[in-house]
Structure formats: structure tokens, C-alpha cells
């Protein structure tokens, strides 16, 4: 995200995307002819029943899974494998236990061949961003679950991605920590101006963070639905419009 760029980057275009797995010899279609445009800097939440293909979609976007048909373009270029303009935050922090917090956050940059000192300087900045400045020298085994997840977030942010892909990043956290982390994600998204694609089980989380919510259907064949969340930011979970939006989203799921 250099200053020399004249247009914002991080646009994702999903075109005719399909993906199926073979399970016990039979083909299992997961994504079928999916089309979607995600604006640069947009925050998109992906919700849907378990097994509907949310993780699969995210893994295809990350380049960890190749699609069977269609393609994904990022800023016009087709995605082939993993790419440095994208960073993934998994459900588990996936920290390297033999590295300190600083080493872990610098890791993403270091493996790209950035000199250690430079990677660490960048890492320090992002560790402060997630509020772990005092824990630079701690090892992952000495962190709480929420702290470890924040390290994972800092590591993804340190490489200055255009697109952040998050697969239920807060799913394993307790309710209190989750709310704090949602606030932090909202702040980070605002400050870093990244495109954020967030898979979540939590409808409130989706409404709190997203510009649009993609609701994936249970039955294959019915196309996914998009719902605009046009609430002002910063959002208030107890505000009437927020609550109404939540009710509407729950109705989408037939949970009334």
C-alpha cells in the first residue's frame, strides 16, 4: 500500500467459481457457479450453515485450494496459488512454538526474504497495534488463547496485505474476549484500509464488522444471498437498527 498508488487495491472478483470434492468416490459439489465482486477496502462477512462451503471458499481465495471451474481475480490478475497480497488468519493462531511473539510476527516478512531487522521493526509496530507490546519476548505457550490469536492477527497485518482472509478467527474465544477482539478488528480494518473477508458463525459479529453479509445456502443450487449492512460506524450492538438487522439475518436462516 504505497503512497504512489492512484487507486485503492484489494478488489476481488469471483467469476463462475465452482469446486467439488470427492468423498468416498462420489463427487460432492461444494461451490457451484459462484459470482461475486468485492470492492477494494470492503468488509465482507460470510455466514451459512455448517458444511456449506465457507472454509472452502476462503481456501480457494487464499490459493490453498484450486477451483474446478471459474476463476478468482485480484485487482484484475487471476489467482494462482498463494500470493503475497493476501494474508490468512486461521481459526487457530498457528504460531510457531519455538519463536517468541516478535519472532512469530516477523516470520511472515522474513520468509519472503526481507532482512531480519526490517521485519522485526515492522513486527514491533504491529505487536503494539494489537496491544501486546509488553509480550514481545514471550513464547506462545505463555500466552492466553486471546493473546495468541492477536499475535496471529499481528503476523498477518505485518506483511501489509491488501486482502485479509479470516476463517472464524474468534470462534475459539470466550464471549468477553470475542467482543474486545471484534472492536480491535473493526479498528484495524478502519486504520489499515484492507479488504476483509471474514467467515463467521456469529451473526452479531457479521453485522458488527461487515459492509455486506454473504449468506450461503444449505442446499446447493440456490444462489447465495447478499445483505447490505448500512449502519453507521462505529456500531452499537444494542442500538435498535442493529437489533432489527440481527432479527432479519436470523430470519434468513429460518431461526424465528
Amino acid at each position: 500500500m504505497g503512497a504512489h498508488q492512484t487507486f485503492p487495491r484489494g478488489a476481488v472478483r469471483i467469476h463462475g467459481l465452482s469446486k467439488s470434492f470427492t468423498l468416498n468416490g462420489a463427487a460432492l459439489p461444494v461451490l457451484r457457479d459462484m459470482n461475486l465482486y468485492i470492492r477494494p477496502g470492503e468488509s465482507l462477512a460470510v455466514v451459512g450453515p455448517s458444511g456449506c462451503g465457507k472454509t472452502t471458499l476462503l481456501r480457494v481465495l487464499a490459493g490453498l485450494e484450486a477451483p474446478d471451474g471459474g476463476q478468482v481475480r485480484i485487482d484484475g490478475r487471476p489467482v494462482q496459488g498463494v500470493g503475497t497480497e493476501r494474508a490468512v488468519i486461521f481459526q487457530e493462531p498457528r504460531l510457531l512454538p519455538w519463536l517468541t511473539v516478535l519472532g512469530n510476527v516477523a516470520f511472515g516478512f522474513e520468509v519472503r526474504g526481507v532482512p531480519k531487522a526490517e521485519a522485526e521493526a515492522q513486527a514491533r509496530q504491529n505487536i503494539r497495534l494489537v496491544g501486546l507490546g509488553e509480550f514481545e519476548d514471550a513464547f506462545p505457550a505463555q500466552l492466553s488463547g486471546g493473546m495468541a490469536q492477536r499475535v496471529g492477527i499481528a503476523r498477518a497485518l505485518a506483511v501489509q496485505p491488501e486482502i485479509l482472509l479470516l476463517d472464524e478467527p474468534l470462534g475459539a474465544l470466550d464471549a468477553m474476549t470475542r467482543i474486545t477482539m471484534q472492536d480491535e478488528l473493526a479498528r484495524i480494518w478502519r486504520e489499515q484500509q484492507v479488504t476483509m473477508i471474514l467467515v463467521t458463525h456469529d451473526l452479531e459479529e457479521a453485522i458488527f464488522l461487515a459492509d455486506r453479509v454473504l449468506v450461503m445456502p444449505r442446499e446447493k443450487g440456490t444462489p447465495p444471498r447478499l445483505i447490505d449492512i448500512d449502519l453507521p460506524r462505529p456500531r452499537d450492538r444494542s442500538e435498535a437498527r442493529f437489533v432489527a438487522m440481527r432479527r432479519r439475518l436470523m430470519a434468513e436462516f429460518g431461526l424465528h
Partner: peptide
């Protein structure tokens, strides 16, 4: 999962092995 994580950061095969 750790190997996959390293790959998403663009680590080469050799780097994944070494790191």
C-alpha cells in the same frame, strides 16, 4: 497447519523446511 501457514506467507519449499 503450521506448514500451510508458512506457505500462505509465500515461503518456498526450502524455507518451509528450514523455518
Amino acid at each position: 497447519k503450521l506448514i500451510e501457514m508458512a506457505r500462505t506467507f509465500g515461503a518456498s519449499r526450502l524455507t518451509v523446511f528450514r523455518r
